[in-house]
Nucleic acid binder design. Structure first.
Lengths: 126, 126
DNA sequence: CCGTATCCCCGGAGATACTG
DNA sequence: CAGTATCTCCGGGGATACGG
């Protein structure tokens, strides 16, 4: 994709689509699970990890860093031995729960319909 | 989640998380743009393609098929010459617009804050 | 105009091993 | 316990060319 013809010169542009900016985060499998995992309060790294079935240490760290960078969660290090780190949603992060929940509701409400549609589509599509 | 030896359930799995099922679609860059592109009414393939900056023909086709399979859009072929195909949101697809819009609003409302957070994080993180 | 088939590359993400 | 560093593999998706 060449930028040769894009006169749109907002510097903080996100490729012209602010929606994507958040959706990239929200759409990310692990990000959502991490946010949801933190919605009931602070958690330590290892507990969070256990609560998110299937995530690797690497991915959890990476995901949490992103969320921290965006200001959606805080990271608190307790200099005990062994190290102990807790994560918690920020005020900003908490506000994300609501629209996320709206989507979750939509999902639950329409899940069966969608699965049925898929089945129907697949069966007539052999 | 202690599913001792979960023997690789099914392929319409969602791995026990219905949320993911939809988020996989919603989180998909092109899916969202396609849905948004159709929110004002039916469109032909090529118009849709032009309206979504940067999408390849391959990706658009693929994305539209998925959405059709899920029953979120309809595909109508007019056997004219040359072929002409129009896509349109279904009733179900229309209902997705609302929660999607909620997220979009959140995005717009918090975009600056997030970008600021990122900048702050990056500057103290050299 | 609309869609499919091929080739190919780049980066995401798992496994593993190691430090503070 | 929490995090980083490699290595590697796999597949998403762009470019391209062709068919209906």
């Amino acid at each position: 994709m060449s930028q040769a013809d894009a006169p749109e010169t907002r510097s903080d542009d996100t490729s012209g689509c602010p929606l994507r900016d958040i959706l990239d985060r929200v759409g990310d499998k692990w990000s959502v699970l991490a946010i949801v995992g933190l919605k009931d309060g602070r958690m330590r790294f290892s507990d969070l990890r256990r609560s998110i079935e299937g995530i690797s240490q690497r991915m959890l760290t990476q995901t949490l860093r992103q969320l921290e960078r965006d200001g959606l969660i805080t990271r608190t290090v307790y200099p005990s031995v062994p190290a102990r780190v807790e994560y918690e949603l920020t005020a900003l992060g908490v506000t994300l729960i609501e629209p996320l929940t709206a989507l979750a509701r939509w999902s639950e409400n329409n899940r069966r319909a969608i699965l049925a549609n898929r089945a129907a589509y697949d069966s007539r599509e052999i």
